[in-house]
């Protein structure tokens, strides 16, 4: 018997599937928000079919946050300061831009002798200790209590330090918008940096991020980080797979699970500007934070030196008095 599926019933089914995935995500989001734990997302690379429903949903959900630059742009002093303008290329979806915070990378790999195409949704990793947030000189990049790293477009001056310190070079700049226009538009600043903010406003309202809600394949799961890590490890054990994001840069809140090693995936994907890699990343803040421990010892060393000097002087004076 042949079953005929009408367009209407297909859409109904799709919506029902999306709602059921969303329904499973909402309690996890709410639970984590209540407890103030860091939220993490799990991306099961095997499931992604590369349909870009998440990319579309991301753009639709965040359109109000996208830049609306004023043209012509202020003359940059000195001339070497690059203008980065994506306002005429808003439909670009093959890389990260100020108007596209999520894109799909494609990798053709060999799994058990069979050539397989894997699709990898890429966006901000939302590091547990994000260098973009910690090293921003103005506090324009913020980390929320649930672990979301976001850039405040009202404060950001577009210096792009966040992109330079990000191990994946995620934030993207749009010139001609933001606070710098009201300060010294030619001399300092160069726009605003944009990246995934994990739909912080939706999450605050108890919803899952738009990309998770829209995915028809249930590629992404969101929940407390420890639960997501446990789930990722369970899948990896089951499929003899690999995890990315658990240790990278000291741990991130975006965890990938793949049936092939990430070195292999990294070799198979196109990387470059706006197209992040999948290499192993050491904890970028670790050296500084190890030195921070030495700061506790420094005053003790200073006090010990001063007391030692005093003791030496007293001994010297006593010796002279005896003689």
């Amino acid at each position: 018997m042949q079953t005929k599926i009408s367009r209407r019933s297909f859409l109904k089914g799709g919506v029902a599937a999306a709602c059921s995935v969303a329904a499973t995500s909402v309690p996890a989001v709410a639970k984590t928000t209540e407890k103030g734990q860091q939220l993490a997302t799990l991306i099961d690379v095997r499931k992604c079919v590369g349909c870009e429903a998440c990319v579309e949903a991301c753009q639709e959900s965040n359109v109000a946050k996208f830049p609306q630059p004023q043209k012509p742009f202020p003359k940059m002093i000195p001339n070497r300061v690059p203008v980065e303008d994506w306002s005429d290329k808003k439909d670009v979806t093959h890389r990260l831009t100020p108007y596209n915070w999520l894109f799909i990378q494609h990798a053709t790999v060999d799994i058990n002798g069979e050539e397989t195409e894997l699709n990898i949704p890429r966006r901000c990793m939302h590091c547990s200790n994000p260098p973009c947030v910690k090293l921003c000189p103005w506090g324009a990049a913020k980390q929320m209590s649930n672990g979301t790293a976001r850039i405040d477009s009202d404060i950001c001056l577009g210096g792009s330090k966040c992109r330079q310190v990000c191990p994946w070079k995620i934030p993207q700049r749009q010139t001609g918008t933001g606070l710098y226009l009201d300060l010294l538009p030619s001399m300092a600043g160069n726009g605003v940096m944009y990246k995934c903010d994990r739909c912080y406003n939706r999450v605050a309202a108890g919803h899952a991020p738009a990309c998770i809600d829209a995915c028809p394949e249930g590629v992404q799961t969101i929940g407390p980080r420890n639960e997501i890590i446990a789930k990722a490890n369970a899948i990896a054990n089951e499929i003899n797979g690999y995890i990315y994001g658990e240790q990278e840069n000291g741990g991130t809140n975006t965890i990938y699970v793949s049936p092939v090693p990430f070195e292999e995936l990294d070799n198979a994907i196109e990387t470059g500007q706006g197209r992040p890699h999948l290499k192993a990343v050491s904890d970028q803040m670790a050296d500084g934070n190890n030195l921070a421990a030495a700061m506790l010892i420094a005053p003790l060393a200073g006090v010990a030196a001063a007391v030692g000097k005093l003791y030496k002087n007293v001994k010297k004076t006593e010796g002279k008095e005896i003689n």
Binding site: L291, A294, A298, P299, G302, V303, A305, A306, V307
Partner: peptide, 16 residues
């Protein structure tokens, strides 16, 4: 950070 460590150490020494 390194300069801050030296600065804190010397400041503590001079203060005491």
């Amino acid at each position: 950070y390194l300069a801050a460590i030296i600065f804190i150490g010397i400041s503590a020494y001079l203060l005491v």
